[in-house]
Design a protein around this nucleic acid. Sequence first.
DNA 1: TATATCGTTCGCAAAATTACGAACAATATT
DNA 2: AATATTGTTCGTAATTTTGCGAACGATATA
Lengths: 108, 108
Amino acid sequence: MENKEYTARQEQLARFAKALGHPARIAIMDFLLKQKCCFFGDINEVLPISKATVSQHLKELKEAGLIQGEIETPKVKYCVNIENWEMASKLFSEFFGQNICKQENCCQ
Amino acid sequence: MENKEYTARQEQLARFAKALGHPARIAIMDFLLKQKCCFFGDINEVLPISKATVSQHLKELKEAGLIQGEIETPKVKYCVNIENWEMASKLFSEFFGQNICKQENCCQ
DNA sequence: TATATCGTTCGCAAAATTACGAACAATATT
DNA sequence: AATATTGTTCGTAATTTTGCGAACGATATA
């Protein structure tokens, strides 16, 4: 009688992974992690895509909870959502920390 | 004169993240990481999707380099690609290890 | 030679992703 | 009131993803 659904942890991990599954979004996170200030224009400047597309990628990262934005007229300031970033960090760390089977009857 | 391309690291990180961006594929990795043996049928059994779809997800993980499969007639054995798994682990670890700005003029 | 098992591939459909230019809203400046 | 700046949203198009059943190939068994 096993449960064939995915666990909440698996869903959350996948959600974060999916949000990070595009080089533009990795580049955005890299940028936000090292900049003091993080205006839309600054991010847009370093990416090889149009501002419409940058805006879209930012929206996805925001919806995944990894970043947050606030209006600071006439600009928009973006930054990492620390709480969720730490949750993601923990989830990935535990995920990769799982022991890989190394018994003799393992395929490797 | 800045380079607006993505770095190889960003591309690779995104490729791994994308491969992990679905709960079924997280579940598959969870399973492979804890099982001694890893036949297709075993994986298929614990997932709430058809075998055709499982096969597809396995293919994506394989193409991303995270797993490998070998025929062991009449079954197919899957396992983690240790080398690439460790590369992914390192990339994510460094990615999440980046210091988040906490200066006073940061947005948080 | 028929039949069963195991898993992939094919063909299809629906939905999501990626990307862009143009239009837009909101606020400042002239 | 016109104009400029900043970034979002709209509309559109091309591509990719996700999912399934059916068909298939390969090997073993009756």
